[in-house]
């Protein structure tokens, strides 16, 4: 039923390669290091999101990622799902401007507005590689959260004998080990409101958790409802099992 995930991986990997790498000859090789498995708060059938990490991850998204990447299917009001109250979400919305009608007019965003897509992600910058939309990135990106984390922390000098083309960077987890995105995160790239030390690892961990949350914002609720439904059905199943045995007891 479920076809091997590597096929799925190849399918989406090639699409992402086209998005991430301008040198398609390199991407055609499609080789990269396997991303190490990490433990995530949302792993497994009963996991749930670490909302503090999701919120810190949003800070990374807002201060770093959103300069180039859009999140066109997510509304500001959706941020309430990661633990913000109405006022906090409104404050976030008001700090953004969105187009207001024609003639280039703008207004502050409201809870019902989608996150604005930056011009480069709209394809308005000539010659630039279009950064993929991040609404569902953690679901559609081959390798999922593990690979996103690996990619964000996987930049480094190319090995001897490998020279990077102009405007690309060596990253052993990117397709063809080369990527057009400059290293986005460094120690201290952002300032966390909760006082957490903003190391590269911490930032990558948090922003990956945020991307996983925004790709499946109802994952926690799905699992909560699932546990209740399953318990109810197990109880009902026991009752019906007893009923069936009693009804059929005079038959055989």
């Amino acid at each position: 039923m479920n076809r091997p995930s590597f096929l799925r991986g190849v399918a989406s990997a090639a699409i992402v390669a086209a998005l991430l790498s301008p040198t398609s000859s390199l991407a055609a090789k499609g080789e990269h290091d396997p991303s190490p498995k990490r433990a995530w708060s949302f792993d497994g059938p009963l996991g749930h999101f670490d909302l503090a990490s999701v919120q810190r991850g949003y800070a990374v998204y807002a201060q770093v990622c959103s300069n180039c990447h859009g999140m066109e299917h997510v509304h500001f009001g959706d941020l309430r799902g990661m633990g913000l109250n109405d006022h906090q979400a409104e404050a976030v919305a008001e700090s953004h401007t969105v187009p207001d009608g024609a003639e280039g007019k703008t207004r502050p965003a409201t809870l019902d507005d989608a996150f604005p897509t930056p011009p480069v992600a709209q394809g308005l910058t000539p010659g630039a590689v279009i950064p993929p939309d991040q609404s569902r990135l953690a679901v559609v990106y081959p390798g999922g959260p593990d690979r996103i984390y690996a990619l964000l922390t996987g930049y480094g000098p190319p090995p001897a004998g490998v020279t990077e083309a102009k405007d690309t960077f060596y990253n052993r987890f990117a397709l063809g080990r080369t990527i057009a995105m400059p290293p986005p995160l460094h120690d201290g790239s952002v300032v966390y409101a909760d006082g957490t030390q903003a190391t590269l690892d911490q930032e990558a961990q948090d922003v990956t958790t945020f991307l996983a949350w925004v790709a499946q914002p109802h994952l926690d609720e799905r699992r909560r409802v699932g546990v209740r439904v399953t318990l109810y059905l197990l109880f009902l199943g026991c009752l019906l099992f007893i009923l069936k045995r009693r009804v059929w007891s005079n038959v055989h």
Partner: peptide, 29 residues
């Protein structure tokens, strides 16, 4: 009674896929 019991078993399989193993039926692409 017999169909009722079978329906609950079916519903349990349904719930297991829908709530805990959606990756079995969802196509990320």
């Amino acid at each position: 009674a017999k169909d009722g019991l079978a329906l609950v078993v079916f519903a349990l399989a349904f719930a297991a896929v829908m709530f805990f193993l959606p990756s079995l039926i969802v196509e990320p692409a």
